[in-house]
């Protein structure tokens, strides 16, 4: 399965970005091949509205089955839920650590948004 981790740049040693909708990018990690790649998401940084929805779309397009991030708002959660992507929020530390915890089964996925939308 592919997992998407919110990232500030193309490095596994970098921190897990705490915002989902306005994450600068995503590390897409394949748990089978152990390969990873970086997907830029900067066009969403300055989106006036709907950043979470577009980020949800972006990780769905990458074929991700799970998202590891800090916080997810209601619209982003609804989008990820519709795409049948499991959400693991409140993930901290480096991206590499997050992947290890995920593979060790130490993370639990959430059933709802964990923060309010910024607009509504």
């Amino acid at each position: 399965m592919k997992i998407a981790i919110t990232a500030t740049g193309n490095s596994l040693q970098g921190p897990v970005e705490q915002r989902f909708g306005r994450a600068p990018g995503f590390i897409i990690y394949d748990t089978e091949t152990k390969e990873s790649k970086y997907v830029d998401n900067k066009q969403n940084l300055n989106a006036m509205q709907g950043a979470g929805i577009q980020s949800g779309r972006a990780v769905a397009d990458q074929g991700a089955g799970a998202v590891l991030t800090g916080h997810v708002g209601p619209k982003a959660f609804a989008t990820l839920d519709a795409a049948k992507i499991k959400v693991y929020s409140n993930v901290t530390g480096t991206i590499e650590e997050a992947i290890k915890k995920f593979e060790a089964g130490e993370l639990e996925h959430t059933g709802s948004a964990d923060v309010e939308g910024h607009w509504m």
Binding site: G50, G56, T79, A82, A83
Partner: peptide
């Protein structure tokens, strides 16, 4: 404005 988006089996609206 991402008010309508298709994910999964049908479109969803915001």
């Amino acid at each position: 404005f991402s008010a309508i988006i298709v994910l999964g089996e049908s479109a969803m609206t915001f």
